[in-house]
Every structure is written in structure tokens, then in C-alpha cells.
Design a binder for these strands. Sequence first.
DNA 1: TTGAAACTATTTCATTTGAAACAATATTGA
DNA 2: TCAATATTGTTTCAAATGAAATAGTTTCAA
Lengths: 167, 167
Amino acid sequence: MSLSTEPTGWQQSSETTPELEAYNLLRQVHSILEMYNRYDLRGEDLTVPQFMILNYASRSGVPLSEISARMMCDNSNLTGIVDRLIAKGYVERRPDPNDRRVSLICLTEAGAEKLRNLRPRHHERLRKRMRSLSEHEVQQLRELLRSLYSGLLTSDNHERDGHQSDA
Amino acid sequence: MSLSTEPTGWQQSSETTPELEAYNLLRQVHSILEMYNRYDLRGEDLTVPQFMILNYASRSGVPLSEISARMMCDNSNLTGIVDRLIAKGYVERRPDPNDRRVSLICLTEAGAEKLRNLRPRHHERLRKRMRSLSEHEVQQLRELLRSLYSGLLTSDNHERDGHQSDA
DNA sequence: TTGAAACTATTTCATTTGAAACAATATTGA
DNA sequence: TCAATATTGTTTCAAATGAAATAGTTTCAA
């Protein structure tokens, strides 16, 4: 996928709903921001998920399953990514003395330094990229996504077909 | 990643901005909706990207690069996914008589039938999942994402460090 | 206490994704 | 025309992801 963002040729399908449009836009925005993040990290010896783990780790150590919960992914996904971060010297695994099942992901000094360097630039870039929204609009967007997020978590949203509750 | 969505233990970091919060929520919402889509397609012999390609293909055929543009991914990603869809009998490749470089992705009758069956249910599920937002809020969200999307495409958002334009 | 159940992380396997290199074809401009 | 350039799709490789199975550990109730 190239970084150039020229107008594309295809048309919006006629069969659509506000919900579907919102969801498609959400996917597109996510995809573009992810792409920019990827390019930002290009020269930094890091991939996007590796950077994400750095952001959730700490010097004192964070359980792998806490990181996977925040990243909304499976534990099994992180094993390999953490391995690569260890190979690069940015984190290390330490056993949790209180629970021998847990392995704590600890930032090394090199990892902490990397993070001190990258995080502020990352936030600043994001801020600039969202300049097309006013301060108020950003907050509006945040609140709408918050509602949506809560709604998705709390209700029975993954029902199977049949037995709709609004019958 | 399990489907259960119980409250998690971690706290929001103190160092954050409205932009970062909005982005993190966007990622989380995206992640949850994607997870639900995955579970919906579980018994349907389809993965999420496979279903997405079905949605963009047609009986008369669509160039692969048009599909990859709409999916915001690289052509190379689709080769394998299309191969699997062909193996399942839902699409086929046909050469474009007007341009021998392009290969048209055509829905088979089985693929068209699958889509007729799945698409309405898919839209209905999405609609229900977004019920926590009012009709007006869905439209607000859509408009905000539209603005953000346009802003991301039009401006020079992937600048390297230095030469900030707001100095 | 002990056995069943739950939890944590890893392993394994298939699929998806990102990126670069490539072959075939099309387009363009000298 | 024809050579340089661009476009389309595939191949290849590394990384990430989803899901199931597994081993080790903890929790909890009988």
C-alpha cells in the first residue's frame, strides 16, 4: 500500500445505511492512521504492534495478559512480538514472584529511552493529523466513540440469528 | 481473543490528549466490531477479508486493483485471499479483454447466492450493534469521520520530523 | 486436602498483512 | 516508432493475527 492518497475511481454503493457508512468510514480512517504510524516507525527499528507493546510495558513490569487485554488481542499474538522486542533489547521477560504463571514484560533502559524519544512525537503527529476537526469536534467524536464502545461491551451484541430481543 | 467483554482491570494513562483518546477509542471500536464480524462468519465458511472481497466483487467482474483500493490494502494481499475464494467456488478470475494486465474478479453463482444471504443479515447486525447511538448520533459520527477522512487524505499528513508548517 | 475448574503463557498451524522484487502489459513522449 | 515510464498482478519473505491445544499454576469448593 503506497502512501499517496489520490482520489480513487470507485463510487459509493447505492445500498447503504448511515450505520454502514459510519462503519466503513471508521475502517478507512483506522486504516489510514495505521498506515501513517507504520511509516513514522519505518526508520525506528519498530513495527506498529511492537511500539504498542512498548507503550503498555513499564520498567517495573506488566503482565502479558494485561497488555493483550489493552491491545484487544490474544495472548498468543504477543509471544512472538515480545520475542522480537527482546531480541532488539527493548524489553525483557521477568517471572512474577507472586504468581508463577505470570511473566512480566519489563522495559529495558533502551526501551524506556526509545519511548521517551518517540511518544511525544507520536502524539504530536496524531494531533496534527486530526487538525481537520476542531477541538470541539474531536471531543464530540471521542464522546460518540465512548458511547459506542460502552454499548458494544455491555449489550448482547454477538447474538446468533433468531431470538431478536426487540420482537 | 474471547468474545466475552467483562470489565478489565487497567486504568487510562494520565498522559493523554483528546486526540489520543479519540484514536484509542476508534481502535477499540474497530477491534470489537471486527471481532463480532469474525464470529458472525464463523459458520459461513468465510473469513472477514474473504467476505469483504465478495462484497466488492460482481458477476461481471471487478479489477483486483479496484478491490484493493476500496479495501485500502496492497494488491499482493489479495492474491492469496482470492485463491482461497476460488478454491471455495465463490469467485473466479477472468482476463480483462481490454487490458491484458488486469484480472477481473467475478462472483460465481454460488458467491452471489452467499452474498444475497449474508449481506442483509450483516447490515442488520451492524445496525443493532450501534443501537447505543441515536439515529442523530450515528449521522454525527458519520459526518465527523467523513471530515477526518477527507482531512487525512488531502493534507500532507505524513511529513517527516522538522519543517512544521505551523511555526 | 484434594480434585475440578479457571487462569497464564506458549506452541502450533492456517490466514492475513506489509513490503520489495519481478514479469507482463500499457502509456507516453521524443 | 520506440524507448522510458507507469501500471497490474504475482511471487517471495517476514511479521502479525486468530484459534485450538497444551503445560504449568492458582483458585475454590467439596
